[in-house]
Nucleic acid binder design. Structure first.
Length: 477
DNA sequence: CTGGGGACGGGGCCC
DNA sequence: GGGGCCCCGTCCCCA
């Protein structure tokens, strides 16, 4: 016979013990603030602590001490509260930091929820967003987000009552129920984004992890590191940034909270005040309408006006919802966001490779397909269509003179220079335009062979099918 | 190990 | 304000 409330009561008791500093055998130092906790609870909740405590498992008599500089005490409070309650107090202000901290601590469940939170904010559909983040008590039992949280819950944490004035934008995501085990569940509308983020993570992770891994770092360092600032901020405690840098980081991170505005001219509720109002809320309701397709993420894409004016820093007004990157213009943010979403709207119609930016496509086309520099790669002599050929080896294409060609005995894909010539880059970067090889005007993906039968031109239709493809494999380099 | 080539992200400027 | 373009730095792959 199973008593469903046991798990909850057990956790509640542990939380009570933590509050009363009973049996706490682990001290966590976060930017000077000490948090007390139980090793076994931390061990069970975080991959980072699991590794850390495993290393120190033999010295059980002494309290374990861990210190962090990579995130703020407030962020760790959210994390620790989750560990001891199963409730994750996410807000538009803290979601990035919480996700970064969770990444650092290897708490995949928390990361997943943060991603979902962010994804929902990015969702084009305002309705969808409202459904997932209207977290009044009533909605907690009916809307999407909490459906993901209480999905097949074996036990249910007692309902805390978020203030009824919470708006969708600033609602607090309560990760309750059986969240410990079941957070792999996503509402269907959010799975794609989840996959995208994960893949992007993997890509960044595999590519860049080694540079950030210290000897004692967790295996999965925060992957959301598109900015140098975040690179620094994510450094482990043992490799903390220089004091000067750290101060800057703190200032910027702090200002990213205090200075957050929900659309221009919106009210700003300082974080501390928000916390006084409610431990799980982030203040007053204030929704704002931005512009498509970012209209639905106003509470994350904050306008950084106040701190930019307060400090003498340049006016970096737009903040990336996925990292700490700040940009001056919305267009720059739009461009930057593609590095997170993996969106590649600019296909090269000569080779099918897709690019996130038109100028990169343009550059690619010039260097690869228009080979402006008719020099033999081997002997460096000038070649013409008569004296040389374009050779393709794997993904590399270059020119060789006939002599070097014969010497090398290359018989891989050869491309006539003449055949190269007609390829013209489409003007004005019309990503939807069909710029054609010859007279063909076809839709959908189609393989077209040129006269030589060697060069394979892939015409790519940038419509639904491609969208599907983009979602499946973003950011393939 | 090193250098070259290509891809990519950020910043800035121009229209 | 937004798009396009250019430049620069960085990273990765490969020879």
């Amino acid at each position: 016979m199973e008593i469903s409330s046991h798990q909850f009561h057990l956790l509640e008791q542990l939380n009570e013990q933590r509050r009363q500093d009973l049996f706490c055998d682990c001290n966590i130092l976060v930017e000077g603030k000490v948090f007390k906790a139980h090793r076994n609870v931390l061990f069970a909740s975080s991959g980072y602590f699991k590794m850390l405590l495993s290393q120190n498992s033999k010295e059980t008599s002494q309290p374990t001490t861990a210190s962090f500089q990579a995130f703020s005490p407030d962020t760790f409070t959210v994390i620790l509260d989750f560990v001891y309650s199963g409730k994750l107090s996410l807000t538009g202000q803290n979601v990035i930091e919480v996700m970064s901290a969770a990444s650092y601590l290897q708490m995949t469940d928390v990361i997943s929820v943060c991603k979902t939170f962010i994804k929902s904010s990015l969702d084009i559909s305002e309705k969808e967003k409202d459904r997932y983040f209207s977290l009044s008590d009533k909605d907690v039992n009916s809307n999407g987000v909490d459906r993901s949280c209480v999905y097949s819950a074996g036990w249910r944490a007692e309902s805390s009552s978020p203030p009824s004035h919470l708006s969708p934008d600033q609602g607090t995501c309560m990760m309750g129920g059986n969240a410990w085990n079941n957070l792999s569940y996503y509402p269907p509308s959010q799975r794609t984004a989840q996959q995208q983020l994960s893949k992007h993570e993997q890509r960044q992770d595999s590519g860049k992890r080694s540079r950030h891994l210290g000897p004692q770092q967790p295996a999965d360092i925060p992957p959301y590191k598109s900015s140098k600032l975040e690179d620094r901020a994510a450094e482990p405690a043992g490799h903390s940034a220089q004091p000067e840098e750290q101060g800057q980081i703190e200032a910027e991170v702090e200002s990213s909270h205090v200075g957050y505005q929900y659309g221009q001219g919106a009210d700003v509720t300082p974080r501390n005040q928000q916390e006084r109002e409610s431990p799980h809320s982030s203040g007053k309701a204030k929704s704002s309408k931005g512009e498509e397709p970012y209209r639905s993420m106003p509470f994350i894409m904050g306008v950084m006006g106040s701190w930019a004016e307060a400090d003498d820093l340049p006016r970096m007004r737009f903040k990336c919802p996925f990292c700490t990157h700040l940009v001056k213009r919305k267009a720059d943010l739009k461009r930057h966001l593609r590095c997170h979403t993996g969106e590649r709207p600019y296909p090269c119609e000569a080779c099918g490779k897709r690019f996130s930016r038109l100028d990169h496509l343009s550059s690619h086309f010039r260097t690869i397909h228009q080979a402006c520099n008719p020099i033999c790669r081997k002997c460096k002599r000038h070649v013409t269509e008569l004296t040389g050929q374009v050779v393709q080896e794997g993904t590399r294409r270059y020119r060789l003179c006939n002599e070097c060609l014969a010497e090398a005995g290359i018989d891989s894909v050869r491309v006539d220079l003449v055949a190269e010539a007609p390829l013209e880059f489409p003007p004005d970067g019309n990503k939807d335009s069909q710029w054609h090889y010859g007279e063909d005007n076809r839709s959908d993906v189609e393989i077209v062979e040129d006269g030589s039968g060697d060069l394979v031109i892939q015409q790519v239709d940038d419509s639904e099918d491609e969208v599907e493809e983009k979602e499946v494999k973003p950011n393939i380099r």
